[in-house]
Simulated scan of single mutants.
Amino acid sequence: MLHNDDIDTALAYHRAVTANPLLARNELWSMGSFAADLPCDFTLPPKTSLRRTATEVIRDITSRGDAYLYYLISTAVPVQLAYDRDFGGLRDGLDEAITARVAQGISDPRVQAASEALIKTIR
């Protein structure tokens, strides 16, 4: 998704994560451990701040292609918000980043709709 900007791949992954709680858990763990918010031993503490993860996600929302944006807003961010409702204290920054990306224009209507839906959810 990062390199080929294939929205169909992002859609398929979203369906898989939505249908499988273990995949959703792994999604949370992989981004959280990559950003050093979560331990690298496949465990998830009951609750912790995902501040570093949120910072990375916000950066990627502003700079990546539409397919990766769709992956973030439809799959990764909802999983992260379910774990850390405050999004590492950056919930407002998330709203601002998505709003700015929508204002720039998104070419795929599915990504546009998903972006607008997430904005409504986080407000």
Rank of each mutant, 00 (worst) to 15 (best):
D6R: 13
L38Q: 12
H3S: 13
D8R: 14
I58C: 04
S115K: 05
P45I: 04
N26R: 14
A36F: 15
A10S: 12
G89Q: 05
V102Q: 02
R59T: 10
R59H: 13
R91A: 03
V17A: 14
T121Y: 11
L90H: 02
R123A: 12
F42E: 06
V57F: 04
L28K: 13
G105L: 06
R25C: 08
S107D: 08
S49P: 01
A35H: 08
A67R: 03
P21M: 08
Q80N: 08
N4S: 14
Y71K: 10
I98S: 02
S30N: 12
P46H: 09
H3P: 04
R64E: 13
I61A: 04
V102K: 00
Y70H: 15
Q112T: 15
L69Y: 12
S49N: 09
E96R: 06
C40L: 15
L22Y: 11
T53Q: 12
R85I: 11
L72Q: 08
D37T: 07
E27K: 09
R123M: 05
M1D: 10
I119W: 00
P39Y: 12
R85W: 06
G89P: 07
A82R: 05
H14C: 05
L69K: 09
Q104W: 02
M1W: 05
P45R: 15
D92L: 04
L23D: 06
I106A: 03
D92M: 03
A36Q: 15
D5Y: 05
A113F: 03
R64Q: 13
Y13M: 14
C40P: 03
T99I: 01
L23T: 12
S115R: 03
A117F: 06
L23V: 14
I122M: 02
D41H: 01
N4Q: 13
T48I: 09
D41E: 00
S49C: 11
N20I: 13
G88I: 04
T55G: 05
P45F: 09
L72N: 04
A19G: 13
R85A: 15
T53L: 01
S30P: 00
I73T: 11
P109T: 02
Y13D: 09
S49R: 10
R91P: 05
A97P: 00
A117R: 08
L28F: 11
I98R: 06
T53C: 12
Q104S: 05
V17N: 10
I106V: 11
F34G: 01
R59W: 08
L22H: 14
P78I: 03
E56P: 00
L44P: 11
T75N: 10
R51K: 14
L90D: 01
A12N: 07
Y83N: 04
A76M: 10
D8G: 09
A117E: 10
D60N: 14
T99M: 01
L2A: 03
Y13A: 12
Y83P: 06
A67I: 09
